[in-house]
């Protein structure tokens, strides 16, 4: 299956996980999917076989609440068992909780409290520089998350240390739990903000497009002496009109009727994309 179609298959898996666990941050799961697919199946040197390799690439899901999408990706990548996730997610005594936990294979660091991922990645990228290793470090943040001051402490330090092995991605879906990000705590010109901190900024006009993401990540690898951020303009709830661009779908479990419509929409999109050849 090509990566564009895979993103829709994994959206379907994600919705199943949410319905099985009766919980989940479905809106952000849908917006971030292509970013995760491109990273795990194209960009990053990470697999269940190389987790002991000190030269592997490193990833932190800083917007840890998009855990259901991350579970679907980790299962597809062979780190976790999908059936086990479906049976356990959010249930009493389960190891499959609603945020990343590094007791599970494939997950490097615990996250969930926003604004931690980038500063931790600064440490990881700094260690790579100290040891002259050529791994790359990737972090995915939400746009609502950027209101956390600790993000900007990390942004400052990444530039100070010249961490060109660090690539941050902002899942810019423009919605957070209370509504439009610009109404809650606006980012003004987000690109300019990062640029003013000395970062290389790449705008990904359609952050749900694998081709555009691929080009952006490739460009990031060529940047020397400074970190790169991808502002990926995504759609919250991407894949079905039931939930697209609706803040109320930040955290929501579909009803049976909604589930049927969502799954039909996702399947239709997947089938349309299966013809795509990379």
């Amino acid at each position: 299956m090509n990566l564009k179609a895979l993103a829709y298959q994994l959206r379907k898996d994600t919705v199943d996980i949410i319905c099985a666990g009766k919980a989940g941050h479905i809106g952000g799961d849908m917006s971030v999917m292509e970013i995760l697919v491109e990273l795990y199946f194209k960009q990053m040197n990470i697999s269940p076989e190389n987790m002991g390799d000190k030269n592997r690439d490193l990833f932190i899901m800083s917007k840890g609440h998009s855990m259901e999408a991350y579970y679907a990706v980790l299962a597809e990548k062979g780190f976790l068992d999908k059936e086990e996730i479906l049976q356990g997610f959010s249930k009493f005594g389960s190891k499959f909780i609603g945020h990343p936990n590094n007791k599970l294979p494939g997950i490097e660091m615990n996250s969930g409290s926003l604004g931690h991922g980038l500063p931790v990645c600064v440490g990881m990228a700094k260690a790579g520089k100290m040891d002259h290793r050529d791994y790359r470090v990737y972090v995915v943040m939400g746009d609502g998350e950027l209101a956390e001051g600790s993000v900007w402490e990390g942004v400052m330090a990444a530039h100070q240390y010249g961490l060109d092995n660090l690539c941050a991605v902002v899942d810019r879906n423009r919605l957070q739990i209370s509504g439009n990000t610009e109404d809650v705590m606006g980012h003004d010109d987000l690109h300019e903000r990062f640029r003013s901190f000395g970062w290389h900024v790449i705008d990904v006009a359609d952050g749900n497009d694998i081709d555009e993401l691929d080009a952006a990540f490739e460009e990031a690898k060529t940047v020397k002496g400074k970190p790169t951020v991808l502002i990926a303009n995504t759609v919250k709830g991407k894949g079905s009109s039931v939930m697209e661009n609706k803040a109320s779908w930040h955290h929501k479990v579909p009803t049976e009727a909604e589930y049927q419509t969502i799954m039909q929409d996702l399947e239709a999109a997947k089938e349309a994309l299966e013809a795509w050849e990379k």
Binding site: K54, M109, P119, V122, A127, D131, G154, M156, Q160
Partner: peptide, 24 residues
Amino acid sequence: QFVEVGIAEQNLVSIAAGLAKCGK
């Protein structure tokens, strides 16, 4: 083997954790 973080204690601890994750 020394990292100066500036007056940013949250960053200090997170960066230390990232370094440690990579064997430091």
